[in-house]
Computed example of a mutant assay.
Amino acid sequence: MTRPGELDARIAALAEAADLASGRLEDGLVETGRAVVEKAGARLGLGLETTVAALAGPTGVGKSQLFNALTGAELATVGRRRPTTSAGQAAVWGDGGEALLDWLEIGRRHRLEAGELDGLVLLDLPDFDSVEAAHRVEAERIVELADLVLWVVEPQKYADATLHERYLRPLASHVGSMALVLNQADLLSPADVGAWRKDAERLLEEDGLRAIPIAIVSARTGDGLPELRRLL
Score class of each variant (00 low, 15 high):
Gly194Met: 10
Arg229Phe: 05
Glu113Trp: 03
Met178Tyr: 05
Val152Cys: 04
Gly57Val: 00
Thr51Leu: 09
Asn68Lys: 10
Ala21Trp: 11
Val193Gln: 14
Ala54Phe: 03
Asp102Cys: 02
Tyr158Met: 07
Val92Met: 03
Val30Met: 08
Ala215Trp: 06
Gly208Asp: 08
Glu105Leu: 02
Trp103Ile: 01
Pro155Asn: 02
Ala9Gln: 13
Leu70Val: 14
Val153Phe: 02
Gly45Lys: 02
Ala9Arg: 14
Arg111Phe: 04
Gly97Ile: 01
Leu100Phe: 00
Glu49Phe: 00
Leu29Ser: 11
Glu38Met: 05
Lys198Val: 05
Asp223Leu: 06
Leu123Cys: 11
Asp8Thr: 02
Glu116Val: 12
Leu100Ala: 13
Leu66Ile: 14
Asp147Phe: 06
Asp102Ser: 13
Gly79Asp: 10
Glu31Trp: 07
Asp27Asn: 08
Glu16Ile: 00
Gly224Lys: 04
Leu182Ala: 10
Pro4Cys: 00
Leu182Lys: 03
Leu29Pro: 06
Ala17Arg: 15
Gly47Lys: 02
Gly115Ala: 15
Ala200Lys: 01
Leu25Lys: 07
Asp95Gln: 08
Ala219Pro: 08
Arg82Ser: 14
Leu75Cys: 08
Ala87Phe: 04
Pro83Arg: 06
His135Val: 02
Arg80Ile: 09
Trp93Met: 04
Leu104Gly: 05
Arg166Ala: 15
Ile142Arg: 02
Leu188Asp: 07
Val153Pro: 02
Ala146Ser: 12
Ala40Cys: 08
Gly5Thr: 02
Leu188Met: 14
Trp196Gln: 03
Met1Asp: 09
Met1Ala: 14
Arg230Ile: 03
Leu46Cys: 09
Ala21Pro: 08
Leu168Glu: 05
Leu120Ile: 06
Leu101Asn: 08
Ala40Glu: 15
Leu14Lys: 01
Gly28Ser: 15
Leu123Asp: 09
Glu140Ala: 15
Leu66Tyr: 10
Glu38Pro: 00
Leu7Ser: 13
Asn183Ile: 12
Met1Val: 03
Glu105Trp: 00
Leu182His: 05
Ala9Tyr: 03
Arg10Gly: 04
Asp118Phe: 03
Leu112Ile: 08
Ala76Phe: 10
Glu206Leu: 13
Leu66Cys: 09
Arg230Asn: 08
His110Thr: 02
Arg82Met: 02
Leu70Phe: 12
Leu14Cys: 01
Thr84Lys: 04
Tyr158Glu: 04
Lys63Asn: 06
Asp95Ile: 01
Leu148Tyr: 14
Thr59Val: 15
Ala18Asp: 09
Gly57Asn: 03
Ile106Asn: 03
Glu205Lys: 15
Tyr158Cys: 04
Leu104Phe: 13
Tyr158Gly: 10
Leu204Gly: 10
Glu201Leu: 08
Ala172Leu: 01
Gly45Ser: 08
Ala12Met: 04
Leu150Gly: 04
His174Gln: 13
Gly47Cys: 08
Ala146Asp: 12
His174Phe: 14
Ile142Phe: 04
